[in-house]
Design a protein around this nucleic acid. Structure first.
Length: 211
DNA sequence: CCACGGATTGGCT
DNA sequence: GCCAATCCGTGGA
């Protein structure tokens, strides 16, 4: 972890670029939540892009509401929402003020604070070695493991609490592209990006639909 | 005020 | 593979 923390924290200029560029480049970056002496960290392995202008699946489609207003801010904030009466999902706001663009973090590979993540997710120890691949392999799972909820929505990603570190550069040939998962509108946009063959991905059957 | 459905997950068939 | 759980955001009356 010391080696990872010595890498650079991503600054505002990273997030303020165009949605699909940021979405791809978030792969391999490290999500960090630091509360007191406790540090949780995971490498981003799967994301989806959402764009309010043309994308009917985006929460920002249809304009600003109390829930989504942070999506219309300048890139570099966290947007967390609650859904299905049970789950939180976290997004990275991108682009320029007023655009309503954000990247959903769908899966991470746990790096640090893994025991705490296991406690947050399961409230017990792992039953077997395979269960580690069920720890953060979905958007709701990531938020549960990191204890992220709506109170964290609006957090500045250049703050001391929640931020990104520059991880490894993922080569283009190692990035898979597919349609997004679990939506009912604008279903054909190829805006899901993931690190091919990473064992921490959600919905592993979706590999079939690589573009 | 009320109705509807969801960027999911996990349990059961 | 199918489906219920469960709360809240959103839009219409």
């Amino acid at each position: 972890m010391a080696a990872i923390l010595s890498t650079n924290k991503l600054n505002k200029s990273f997030y303020r670029r165009e949605l699909l560029i940021v979405a791809r480049e978030l792969l391999g970056k490290v999500l960090v939540k630091s509360s007191g002496k406790e540090i949780l960290a995971g490498k981003i392995v799967e994301v989806e892009a959402y764009h309010g202008d043309t994308d009917e699946a985006a929460h920002s489609y249809g304009g600003i509401t109390k829930r989504n207003e942070i999506m219309f801010e300048t890139g570099g904030f966290l947007y967390v929402y609650f859904t299905y009466g049970a789950h939180h999902c976290c997004n990275v706001v991108t682009g320029k003020k007023g655009q309503g663009t954000a990247v959903l973090i769908r899966a991470v590979e746990p790096i640090s604070g893994i025991d705490k993540m296991i406690k947050n997710r399961f409230g017990r120890k792992l039953k077997n070695d395979k269960e580690i691949f069920n720890l953060t392999s979905g958007p709701g799972k990531v938020c549960q493991a990191f204890k992220l909820d709506r109170n964290h929505s609006g957090t500045d990603l250049t703050s001391e609490d929640i931020f990104m570190l520059d991880g490894e550069k993922i080569r283009s040939k190692d990035i898979g592209v597919s349609k997004r998962i679990g939506i009912t509108r604008s279903v054909d946009l190829p805006w899901r990006f993931f690190i091919k063959d990473n064992p921490y991905l959600s919905r592993k059957w979706f590999h079939q639909k690589i573009y």
